[in-house]
Amino acid sequence: MSAPELSEAILATLRRVVPAAPPQIVPDSPFRDQFEMDSLDFLNFILALEKEHGVKIPEGRYPRCASLAGATKVLEEALAASVR
């Protein structure tokens, strides 16, 4: 999957987990600056990404998943690691 496709997939997951996410997301800005996302939402979002993409995201990378750009990068790395 290319990075833009991955971003689209992440947005789809995000909207499933946080139904209040707005249609437009600024990739480099934290989700929490753009809409309401509490810690439970955030955790559910990451668990959903893991499940849908069949990867494990190390907890240490969780904070980097706080924006669309960050989450895309982390997921890319996780996918690469699972291929190896």
Binding site: R15, P19, M37
Partner: peptide, 19 residues
């Protein structure tokens, strides 16, 4: 399911809305 959850969330906010 998504629609109902989204509807509740938009009105109640994350503190009260069902998960």
């Amino acid at each position: 399911t998504r629609d109902i959850l989204g509807f509740a969330r938009a009105r109640l906010g994350p503190a009260l809305a069902p998960r």
